[in-house]
Write a protein that binds this DNA or RNA. Structure first.
Lengths: 95, 95
DNA sequence: AGGATAGGCAAGTCGTACCTTGCATTTCAA
DNA sequence: TTGAAATGCAAGGTACGACTTGCCTATCCT
């Protein structure tokens, strides 16, 4: 894979990005819990771990190890390639 | 499906959007030819037709029938939902 | 009318993304 | 040092997306 568009194609991964924005530096377990709370997504720990790995691979998530935990941050820089590729009209999105 | 993120996940569909920007109101056969010329993509007519259907379903492509041909236009409006969902830093994209 | 052109529809195949299962690794705490 | 907590790794299963194949419909031209 290794493609920002494919990374964004999964709804669970998009929800993960949403949660990482609400609170920075979350651990894997924190993300799991918040997914269940705010989105009703009951993904297993391994599933979320793999999603985070995909997001990290394309640069949408940056990580830092602290002891036995791993903290995750959202990084929107890769999204710039989407914005610059196609013309986007101004104004509010209708949805 | 019916999801702009899934629609953008396919490289061929992204190339189709690129070509529709270069020249507006293209027919199915024009898109096929330009994909082969500019991107080296040798997709069959049916494959391109299905891709266009997906893009139209999510609003990234608008169409208009003219006799026995069907013309296609790019519409970037749905992309606004991506921009407004996550914070995107300013500046040029690194890639 | 008849052929040719442009496109649509539907069933089937195949690859792969997503998830699970099980176990291994690293770190902290008593 | 022993157990528990947080995460990593790898193989297997399953479902869905992308493509093909075959045939059908609609429109234009002579």
């Amino acid at each position: 894979m290794a493609d920002i568009y494919r990374a964004l194609a999964d709804p669970t991964r998009r929800a993960i990005l949403d949660e990482l924005i609400k609170r920075e530096g979350q651990t894997l377990f924190e993300v799991c819990g918040r997914l269940a709370m705010a989105h009703g997504i009951a993904s297993s720990r391994q599933a979320v771990s793999q999603h985070l790995a995909v997001l990290e691979e394309v640069g949408l998530v940056r990580t830092e190890r602290q002891g036995r935990t791993k903290l995750h941050w959202f990084d929107g820089s890769p999204l710039k390639s989407i914005v610059s590729r196609w013309p986007i009209p101004r104004g509010k999105s209708k949805s």
